[in-house]
Amino acid sequence: MEYSNIQLAYFIERPNRFIAHCRLVETGKTVVVHVKNTGRGKEVLLPEALVALDYVPSPKRKTDYDLIAVKKGDRWINIDSQIPNDLAAEGLLQKKIVLPKLMGEIIYLKREYRYGKSKFDMYFETDQGEKGFVEVKGLTLENQGIGAFPDAPTLRGKKHVLELIEATAAGYHSYLLFIVQFSKIKVATIHQAMQPEFFQAVAQAKQDGVTILAYNCEVDESTIELLGEVPFDLTQPFIDPNL
């Protein structure tokens, strides 16, 4: 996945979760940008942090820029909340992402599939008649090589996990897939202290047969590409760098 028109800038401030002010590296001009992630991102969106802006001007938009990545130390972290679903769909169809427990190969994939009272990110069928769902979550929070989700409470995320449990009971294959939007990671886990109810829902899902997976990505200022599967450990302690 490659962004078409990247411009580098320095982060200044984030007045609300949708908008940030940044200073373009090339011209020094301060611009208003759309933050493509409603998570908090406090540990990376620091004053003078180098960020990547996608320049996408349109008369229908309130801003000409999307903030899609931020540099943390010597590496980039993609924070575009829309990209994980694209990466997951591509990965599944190109067999870069392997779903355990399946006997056949995926021959049909539909995104935003309605089931119960909400939509799952993906519904699939295999050549062996298997059917299932994949719910995708982008993971951007990291500390000491440990990635954790969520970085802000998510009622919608908890609802989807509970519905994966229901789908599993109804005979579907069900997967919770974390797309880690950076490369250097030892293990992925759930940020229990951020949302104990979400942690409990994931623990119940794992016990009831939902498969939990994590895949990391190679990221720079203008591209993001799937790398491979990384360990997921629900028992892994996580220290929030924002606390």
Results as ranks from 00 to 15, higher is better:
I6Y: 03
I6D: 02
Q7D: 06
R14E: 06
P15T: 09
L24P: 03
L24A: 06
L24C: 04
L24S: 06
K29D: 15
K29N: 11
K29E: 15
V32S: 14
V33I: 12
H34M: 13
V35Q: 02
T38L: 01
R40F: 00
R40K: 11
L45Q: 13
L45W: 10
P47L: 14
E48H: 04
A49P: 01
L50S: 04
Y55G: 05
S58G: 14
S58I: 12
P59G: 12
K62N: 09
D64M: 11
Y65V: 04
Y65R: 07
K72H: 13
G73V: 01
W76C: 00
D80H: 08
S81R: 08
Q82L: 11
Q82F: 07
Q82I: 08
I83V: 14
D86E: 15
D86Y: 14
A88I: 04
A88M: 04
E90A: 15
L93P: 07
K95Y: 13
K96M: 15
I97F: 07
P100H: 13
P100G: 13
K101M: 11
K101N: 14
E105Q: 14
I106Y: 08
K110M: 11
R114E: 07
K119D: 14
D121C: 03
D121S: 04
D121K: 03
M122I: 11
F124C: 13
E125P: 13
Q128A: 13
E130A: 05
G132D: 11
F133K: 10
E135F: 00
E135L: 01
G138C: 00
T140Y: 01
N143L: 03
Q144G: 06
I146G: 04
I146D: 05
A148D: 09
F149P: 02
F149A: 00
D151A: 06
